[in-house]
Design a protein around this nucleic acid. Structure first.
Lengths: 119, 119
DNA sequence: TATAGTGCTATACTAAAGTATAGTTGGCAA
DNA sequence: TTGCCAACTATACTTTAGTATAGCACTATA
């Protein structure tokens, strides 16, 4: 996997900051991460529930992205050993706190649109 | 160009919010946008100055990204009709305000790292 | 026995993002 | 007149991201 960012040469920015920023961008970018996080914000969901919220996603991508989000501590995968086996996905506390970041992105985006309109 | 996000089916989120969030992500994602913005945060720069700050970027990518950032109202390109012709790049006011967003991303990233370490 | 639902995986593909390398235009300095 | 600097552009390429389509293992229901 290639790193999205490479700040190695922007000396003024300490490495831990680069890494932290990198982490944040990584859990937000790509076509499907925000929709998935958005779907899970409304509560615990199963694979097919998320698919219903995001009809255009393929099972391959949903599976891949959920794995990725799990690896990055954004999503908890809970397996119920019932018949049939049920699997639930839920956001971690950390992931829930992302909404503050999203708010600030949203507000900047709205302001920026206004600024660009006015020119 | 393909859209990065497609929230069309996450009904709860009004379109203007989707667009604004989309805009914010678009000016942040990709391998080089943050390094370039970071370089310009330290002041007005010329093409080769930015290249010196970010040695690994190719002129093709720098040119492409600067155009993109200009189109998105993040960067102003000023041409001095001197000999030789000088060209300067500087951040717009809107772009400077991005540092608040970046701060919030940074803080979330730092917290998240701690949370994941402990977890 | 056939069909359908759940939670996926496999294979093959296209499209977008990024890299490598060379070349251009124009002036200028040695 | 050779070579260099600035600010790029052109072409070809590789890598990563995302899509399309099919199928599997298991169980329940008709």
């Amino acid at each position: 996997m290639k790193k999205i960012m490479d700040f190695a040469d922007v000396k003024a920015c300490p490495e831990q900051f680069v890494l932290a920023l990198n982490d944040t961008l990584n859990v937000l970018t790509g076509k499907w991460k925000l929709p998935i996080l958005g779907s899970l914000l409304f509560g615990i969901k199963r694979f097919t529930d998320i698919q219903k919220n995001i009809p255009k996603i393929t099972p391959r991508m949903l599976s891949k992205e959920l794995k990725d989000l799990e690896l990055n501590g954004m999503v908890k995968r809970v397996v119920y050993d019932s018949t049939p086996v049920l699997i639930e996905y839920e956001l971690t506390d950390s992931a829930k706190k992302l909404s503050d970041v999203i708010d600030s992105m949203l507000n900047w985006g709205l302001d920026h649109r206004k600024a660009v309109m006015v020119g």
